[in-house]
Write a protein that binds this DNA or RNA. Sequence first.
DNA 1: CTCCGTGCAAATACTTTGCAAAGCG
DNA 2: CGCTTTGCAAAGTATTTGCACGGAG
Lengths: 130, 130
Amino acid sequence: MRTQNYSRKRQAIYELLLSTKEHPSAEWIYNSLKSEYPDLSLGTVYRNLKLLEENGTVKSVAVVDGRERYDALMSPHSHFVCSKCGRVIDVFFQNEISNIADNLRIDGVKEINSFSLIYYGICDKCFFNT
Amino acid sequence: MRTQNYSRKRQAIYELLLSTKEHPSAEWIYNSLKSEYPDLSLGTVYRNLKLLEENGTVKSVAVVDGRERYDALMSPHSHFVCSKCGRVIDVFFQNEISNIADNLRIDGVKEINSFSLIYYGICDKCFFNT
DNA sequence: CTCCGTGCAAATACTTTGCAAAGCG
DNA sequence: CGCTTTGCAAAGTATTTGCACGGAG
């Protein structure tokens, strides 16, 4: 389909996601792009995120405080979520973690396609601000 | 506080969670208890789940299709989520997985308190029904 | 009487969707 | 022109909350 990246705003959303390590929510993206695209609407952000996700172009990596958080970094890695401020930080796999799904058999399961590993705790900032 | 398990309905919610491997949502619990407690309200289920979770008595183990799913099995283990039907299945750790957070240092992170490992794929039922 | 627990309904908060207008090729 | 994309507002969905009442001690 000629759809791919055919839209300016979709492109902008994707590039913003590529350029940041914030693992932003839809609203964060919306606010960040509002100045450059004053007529951007939140619905468009949601629509495009969904589309990019179905595309396999971006990924929802976590839900923090009820908000979906997205990442354009598609290489397999996991995330840390700060339980206080909700910050999401990339965590790259050590040694054997990338194959924890290999050769794993689960009763009642036909195929395992992916897995998600999320660490929870307190980030530096929150720790020091009591 | 004398609150602990002092309430009949809270007790019922907890026992239902203990007795099932469904990893139910609030609404599933509500529907399951309605016959025995005809005046049960959905709000009460939500309130008690939250309370039990803060208690450390139960755990939210996943969000499937936007619905929080709970488990009363508190021993550390992970879960499989079927991408088609949303079924949640317990997966007990193999070998070294239980300590993947040990000795792990993440830049910008002060302390890691827990982690969540979720596998995604297709369960037997969904696989054979097309 | 004092609290805790609850039903009920209203309120939230995030996300999705219908529709008509605008954009692109 | 035909199809995609979008703004806007309304709708949808899961969850939370305010309030007044009921029950236990």
